[in-house]
């Protein structure tokens, strides 16, 4: 007698069965007999939906999507996140009862994972994970920065704002995924993303810009400018070279330009002369700030 042909197609699980099972689980959850998704699994899924462990080739399948020296902004695909969870939860499905359990608990697992996602970055930094209700469940956006600044300035600071006056949007992830590619995930839709050169300590220095050496002015506690604060509204001041050996400044002439620029900003008290103390404050190197306006590309520096 010939054997029946093996059936590869498993019979579809009737929707009614899923509904019945889900109802039963709801009842069990209501009377506290349903075990919650273990914290280990929920935390792991929270990292997964933020693409932790996902190889770069899956995020950027083609080099044309991220050429060298480029920045690419994107929306994180929620369906992609859910397919990652599908795959992860599908391990060890031994029977259709297992599959039923998966289907019946799926929505809760996804919600658990997404709601924990806002705490992942804090946890990874060794800070107390502060999970905020409703965080990371809406639109998640992000950027990929492939540039020599990623390898050259490891402490770069990134902040994103929904609009210029609002508080910074939470960062869900900010990591170098290769030596020169940085991946950032932002909870919300920013209108502005700022990249701040890392503070390397308070040393004296200048910012080279288009062939000249400039400094960003700092307030001196007069006018509307608090002492020591970088005046982001003021243009950078070019210093004067002495024209002798390479790199030697004409300090006296540079001081004159600084005084003129500070007076133009009404930041210099007429009662106080500009001395070596004021000079020291001005020459404490400022940090470069690059602003990108969402979504149309490069902004300007401040």
């Amino acid at each position: 007698m010939p054997l029946p042909a093996p059936s590869h197609a498993s019979p579809p699980i009737p929707a009614a069965a899923i509904t019945a099972m889900r109802d039963q689980l709801t009842q069990n959850a209501a009377n506290g007999t349903l075990p919650a998704l273990p914290a280990t699994v929920a935390a792991w899924l929270a990292e997964l939906v933020l693409l932790h462990g996902v190889p770069l080739e899956y995020i950027v399948p083609n080099a044309a999507l991220l050429p060298t020296e480029s920045v690419r902004f994107f929306y994180l695909d929620q369906n992609w996140q859910r397919r990652l969870i599908d795959g992860a939860l599908s391990i060890g499905l031994g029977s259709s009862a297992d599959a039923l359990t998966l289907l019946a608990t799926y929505e809760d697992s996804v919600l658990d994972a997404l709601s924990l996602a806002s705490g992942v970055r804090g946890q990874r930094r060794g800070k107390t994970a502060r999970v905020e209700a409703g965080a990371a469940t809406g639109t998640i956006t992000g950027f990929l920065l492939r540039s020599s600044v990623v390898s050259g300035w490891p402490g770069m600071e990134v902040s994103a704002y929904a609009n210029p006056t609002s508080a910074a949007l939470p960062l869900l992830r900010l990591e170098r995924i290769t030596s020169d590619i940085m991946l950032g995930l932002i909870d919300g839709l920013p209108s502005e993303v700022n990249f701040l050169e890392p503070p390397e300590g308070l040393h004296f220095g200048v910012i080279p810009s288009k062939g000249s050496e400039t400094v960003y002015l700092r307030g001196l506690g007069y006018g509307d400018f608090s002492a020591g604060l970088q005046m982001t509204s003021a243009p950078a001041v070019a210093l004067t070279k002495a024209g002798r050996a390479a790199g030697v400044f004409d300090i006296a002439a540079s001081v004159a330009s600084l005084v003129t620029a500070l007076e133009a900003q009404k930041a210099l008290s007429p009662a106080d002369p500009f001395t070596s103390a004021e000079f020291a404050i001005q020459m404490t190197r400022g940090a470069g700030l690059q602003i990108f306006q969402w979504p149309t590309g490069a902004g300007d520096t401040a």
Binding site: N62, P67, S70, V71, G288, A298, T301
Partner: peptide, 22 residues
Amino acid sequence: GNFIEIMQALPTNGGVSLIQSV
């Protein structure tokens, strides 16, 4: 190089845009 100079050169080098193939 210089942080700001490299950042300013991004639009002319690889570009600043949404994630789309060039």
